[in-house]
Amino acid sequence: MVFGLFSSKLSVGLEKRGREYFPGELVKGHLKLSTLKEVKARGVKVQIRCVEWMNPKKDGGKEEEGKEILLWEKEKTLGKAHKYSAGEWKFEFALPKNALPSIIPEPCKKDANEGAGLKWYIRGHMDIPNGIDMHAYKQFFVY
């Protein structure tokens, strides 16, 4: 079962081009499972998260681990225990009206993953029994 999962992939897509949102706006998207075989899962979930993060540049010096502090989160269950074949789940989350604005460390790098800042993202998750869970991730910008 676990070996069959290597040909499977979970991905997140957002409807809005540019992935830029304002507080109070709806974030609509889909979670997609691409697989050739059926995938047995305990459940399928999607989360929206706002986190403070830090991930130092790997410049050959002393390596420090990346850190993340969760500030806000909502979760939706998209599917229960089942054998899943390829398909899509739609989801939507309303951003809070007082949503914190994204903080990016470099101009024009809204998906930056080195440095530190405040980011928003959607995280998809499939809980696989006796195997490695599947994750998907998509970052977006809040003005």
Binding site: E52, K67, I69, I103, L118
Partner: peptide
Amino acid sequence: VTYKGKRL
């Protein structure tokens, strides 16, 4: 923006 959070 100017921000003072938990760690950031």
